[in-house]
């Protein structure tokens, strides 16, 4: 499955991704109802001020993931077919090991589905909610990211008047 990549220089800190993420992980799936749900639906993407610029942060679905290693019951596992770090709530004992282990701070305790909130890349959705919500296309799918980067690189090269 394509990963979500971040063109952080484009982020304006609007937090639309966070809202969309919560709505996507709410029971109702609708903003106006989701804000009334208690406990509140969790977010799995975080807009933080990093190095003076805002930027979205989300699970990188590591291949050799510290969270997976730290899980005593294999509730977190790297799924070979999707390439995602998948969370299985039924297997989770809620020991918070992954919360401590994630070097990026992308796993937080939760009380709704299972005991943690971690990006599941929007199960059952074609495009993740955060990618759809991002008004500046800071969040893009891997393939788009590479396409855009390539085009940018070519443009820069041409503009430099120094094509190879």
């Amino acid at each position: 499955m394509e990963r979500i990549l971040v063109r952080w220089e484009r982020c304006v800190g609007c937090r639309s991704c966070e809202l969309a993420c919560r709505v996507a992980h709410s029971a109702s799936g609708d903003l106006f109802s989701a804000v009334l749900e208690r406990p509140a639906p969790s977010r799995r993407i975080y807009v933080e001020q990093a190095d003076k610029t805002p930027s979205p942060f989300l699970c990188r679905q590591c291949e050799d993931a510290p969270c997976v290693r730290s899980c005593p019951t294999r509730a977190l596992a790297h799924d070979e077919t999707t390439g995602l770090v998948a969370y299985e709530p039924a297997r989770c004992i809620g020991c918070h090991g992954c919360v401590m282990a994630c070097p990026f701070g992308m796993i937080q305790p939760d009380v709704r589905e299972g005991f943690i909130a971690k990006c599941d890349r929007c199960k059952g959705r074609d495009r993740p909610a955060c990618v759809e919500a991002c008004p500046t296309h800071t969040l893009v799918l891997e393939k788009d990211f590479l396409d855009l980067r390539r085009k940018e690189a070519v443009r820069n090269l041409v503009q430099s008047g120094n094509p190879v």
Partner: peptide, 13 residues
């Protein structure tokens, strides 16, 4: 085991 797992994760930090 647990402490090694956590230390292993922590090396990134």
């Amino acid at each position: 085991l647990e402490s090694r797992r956590l230390l292993d994760a922590a090396r990134w930090n």
